[in-house]
Amino acid sequence: MSRVASFPGAKPANSDSSRKSQMSDFQECEVQNRRDQVDNKQSPVNLAVNVGGIRMVNPVTTGSGTFGFGPEYAPYLDLRQLGAITVKGITLEPRLGNPVPRIVETPAGMLNAIGLQNPGVEAFIRDHLPYLREVGVPVIVNIAGNTVEDYAAVAERLDQAPGVAGLEVNISCPNVKKGGLQFGTDPVMAAEVIGAVRASTKLPVIAKLSPNVTNIVAMAESVAQAGANALSLINTLLGMAIDVQARRPVLANVVGGLSGPAIKPVAVRMVWQVAQAVDLPIIGMGGITTAEDALEFILAGATAVAVGTANFINPRATLEVVAGLAAYCEANGIKDINELVGWAWKMSC
């Protein structure tokens, strides 16, 4: 056990701190872990949604790469209350990932260049999937690859693994030079990947689109044609930051993907455009930190939402969004959250 010695020369940071500190002696530390849990069955509002064949008790999942494989956040919330869990991107072979620095904070956001560090599909099935199966909520496995064949092989392997509810195909990761960006920005190549995955699995296939394109609708239409059952949008926006003292890029990878509240308006706009053009359920994401943010996506046309970067700031953000959605519906006399999907354009047209 240790104590902190007093520092003789130390002055209180503010003049009336002694009074306040006495007050706070009576104040207790509030433990937030697993507080105010939502009961999906008790709510008078129907929060259940169906995303291309994936049945979720509520519309909230996690952003791939921001929630690990689930157990990392188990101390802070009851994972069983989530609509689904979307895990870190998985490739056929293990990947080391990029050198550090891998992240940098930017105004109301962050850039990341993790480089798809992951243990590979075999180790995922062996070491991580059993835990997720125990949790019992739908598991969406995010997959990535360097070649069309890689994607197909991972999809085929996961098709045989019990406990996977669907595949989210990352054709948009901007960090891996050989795959990612090329697939994600060319409608023909994107369709090729989705087509190959479609042919390799019976599982629902979700195409995760990159925002780094001029025509997001063309991308969405192309992957829809190729057999996608749902769409996730958006992935991160390509960006960079420069250290002015060192006079060089902050990230070892030079460029990285921007996420967090800073990208929300871009994401909402893309969901709005795609939802009106393509008849597929959408998982909306990009800067969601609160239920109000999630509602913007739903009103723009998303059937479900993913909370990503916000988990880092508030590990309970997902469940707070679930609770907030239920409260909003109740307060506004909405019996089924599906009624709200696309409301902003359905009602104004």
Binding site: V4, F7, S24, V31, Q32, N33, P75, Y76
Partner: peptide, 24 residues
């Protein structure tokens, strides 16, 4: 590990730009 809202009891500047912060 816990997620807490913990009351700050004291905060002192013990040297220029260096702080000592105690919470419950």
């Amino acid at each position: 590990s816990l997620l807490c809202l913990a009351p700050i009891l004291t905060q002192h500047e013990i040297a220029p730009r260096h702080f000592l912060l105690t919470f419950r």
